[in-house]
Design a protein around this nucleic acid. Sequence first.
DNA 1: CCTTGACTTGACCGACCGGTCTATTATCAT
DNA 2: ATGATAATAGACCGGTCGGTCAAGTCAAGG
Lengths: 200, 200
Amino acid sequence: MNPETDTRSRILATAREMFHGRSYADVGIQEICVGAKVQKGSFYHFFPSKQELVMAVIDDMAEDWAHGFVAEAFDQNLPPVERLDYMIDAAYYWQKAASDIEGRMPGCLFGNLALEMSTRDDVMRAKLNAVFDKARDRFRATLDEAVQTGALAPMNTEATGTAMLAYLEGIILLAKTRNDPDVILLLGPAIKTLRIETSQ
Amino acid sequence: MNPETDTRSRILATAREMFHGRSYADVGIQEICVGAKVQKGSFYHFFPSKQELVMAVIDDMAEDWAHGFVAEAFDQNLPPVERLDYMIDAAYYWQKAASDIEGRMPGCLFGNLALEMSTRDDVMRAKLNAVFDKARDRFRATLDEAVQTGALAPMNTEATGTAMLAYLEGIILLAKTRNDPDVILLLGPAIKTLRIETSQ
DNA sequence: CCTTGACTTGACCGACCGGTCTATTATCAT
DNA sequence: ATGATAATAGACCGGTCGGTCAAGTCAAGG
C-alpha cells in the first residue's frame, strides 16, 4: 500500500535477486531500476549509494534467512543431530528451486559477496562476518545441545560449528561451479562427521 | 630474454596477482597494462580479450599449483594421512605470506573466480571445474592409498575427496572473510574427520 | 638493400558506470 | 487553499570500461 515502502522494497527485492544470481560488480543501478520499474532519482532517494544498497540487501536476506528455512531447520523440537540434515536439505531445495527456474545455481549470496568484496570493502566484510557468526552460533547451539543430551561426545562445539559452516559454504561453492545442486545432497550428510576436539 | 615471451609473461604475472588479490570485474585492462609496463596494443597482440587472459591466468596458476606446493603436500613418500595435514599447512603458509605482504587474505583464486564467474561464463566455469576435479583426484588418490594400507577404513574415496576439497575451499572462504589465516590452522586438521561411506 | 611480419605505440571509440541535479508531482497537516 | 515535504522523473555528468586501429619500430631472411 504505502507507496514509499513499496518502491523501496521493490528496489530491494530486485537488487537482491540480481546480486544473488550474478555479482555485485556485474549488476548496475540502471539495471536494477529497470527491473524494479523505478527511476534513478527514486532510487537515490531511498539509497545513498550502491554499497549502501547491497548492505541493505545483506540485512534483508539475513533476516529472511534467520526467520525462514534456517529457523525451521534448527527447529528446537527436532533432535539436535537431525537439524543438521534438515539444514542440508533446506540448502539443497533452495538451490534446486532457483536452479530449476533460472537454469543456474546462484549459490550463497553471503559466500558470493564475501569472496568478491572482502578484499575491497572492510565494512561489508565486517557485515558478512557478522552473518557468518550468527550462522556459526546456530550450529554451535545445536552441537551444545547434542553434547548435553549425550547424542554426541564432548567436543569443541564452537570450532566444530565453524567447521560445519565452512563445509556448507564449500559444498555450495563446488555445487555452483558444477552447476549441479545434487552435489549438496551427495556431500551434505558428511557434515555430521566433522569434529574438532576440545583442546587439552 | 625473448622479448615476446617476456612481455606476455609480464602481463600474465601482473594479471594473476591482481585477479587473485581483487576480482575479475575490479581489475581493468588498463590497470594491468600499467602494472606490467605494457601498452594496450601490445596487450591485445598477445591476448584477444580479457576473458582469454583470465583463462590463461587460470592455466598458469593451476600449473604452478600442481607443480608447486600441492606436489610437495601430496608427496608420495609421506604417509597418506599426513599428506592431508601438509596440504592444510601449505594453504595456511601461502595465505599467511600473502596476508603479511598485502595486508589482506586473497583466498583461493579458483574459488574466487568460481563464485564470481560461474553464473556468467560457462567456458570459465568448465575450466574451473576441471581444476577442481584434478584437486579432487589428488585427494581421492591419497585416500585410496590410505585405505589400501589400512590406515583408513574403506569408504567412498571419490565422494570423500570431493568433500575434503569443498571443506578446504570453505575454510579459505571463511578465513578470507575474517581476514585471518589462522582460521585455516584452527579448522584445517578436521579435514581428516570427513567421511562418506560407500553406498550399499 | 629491401621486404616481411612480429611487436609496440597511443590516440581513439561507443557504451556504460555510479552518481548528481533540477523540475515536477503527490501527499498531507494546517 | 497553502506551504512543506516526500517522492518521482529523467536529462545530464565526468570517468572508466573493454576493445579497435592506423602508424610506426625493429630484427631476421632473402
